[in-house]
């Protein structure tokens, strides 16, 4: 039984037809809408590679039934730069080598953006590490990620 839903993704409204109600938000983004920046690492909520913002909150899109988010505002990695200008978190990840293979990176960046909107820019490194522990990096770029988070905070607080 076909289904339809509407998602506003990175500011653009998408009317989406589904063959049935099964697809997750992740599979809708990747396979139906063609936004493949969001990655599938485990499909079970155990790695964070699929992190997106739904109505401003970071969640694992692999454990979100797309139908259940009909009408939601979604922000993905494709939607965080301002034209050619990178988001401060993106810039900080490059500058501090906060990734290696890059596969977990969209999820890391979306998670960091979510974290900063939850916590403000409190600069306790332990809090940052804990707050980002839902994003596994198998290359273990963790030293760079921590530096990137601290740098991003500085950049963000400078902007505020």
């Amino acid at each position: 039984m076909t289904r339809s839903l509407t998602l506003t993704i990175n500011g653009t409204k998408h009317d989406i037809e589904l063959e049935d109600a099964r697809p997750t938000l992740l599979d809708v983004l990747r396979e139906r809408v063609g936004l493949t920046g969001t990655k599938k690492g485990c499909d079970r909520g155990q790695c964070g590679a699929c992190t997106v913002l739904v109505d401003g909150r970071r969640i694992n899109s692999c454990l979100a039934l797309a139908m259940s988010h009909d009408g939601a505002e979604i922000t993905t990695i494709e939607g965080v730069a301002d034209g050619e200008t990178l988001h401060p978190v993106q810039a900080a990840f490059i500058e501090n080598d906060g990734f290696q293979c890059g596969y977990c990176t969209p999820g890391q960046i979306m998670s960091a953006i979510g974290l900063f909107s939850e916590n403000g820019t409190a600069n306790d490194p332990e809090q940052l590490r804990e707050g980002m522990s839902g994003n596994i990096c198998r290359c273990a770029a963790y030293a760079g990620i921590t530096e990137a988070l601290l740098d991003a905070q500085t950049r963000l607080s400078g902007k505020e």
Binding site: R30, E31, G34, L35, T36, G37, T38, K39, K40, T76, I77, E78, A81, L86, Q90, A91, F93, I94, E95, D97, F99, G102, Y103, T105, P106, I109
Partner: peptide, 21 residues
């Protein structure tokens, strides 16, 4: 130097195999 493919990787534009359709 920072990574040559850095911008592609932080913007979701880096093309991994599963991204092709």
């Amino acid at each position: 130097m920072t990574r040559r493919e850095g911008v592609a990787k932080v913007t979701g534009k880096a093309n991994y195999a599963a991204d092709n359709k």
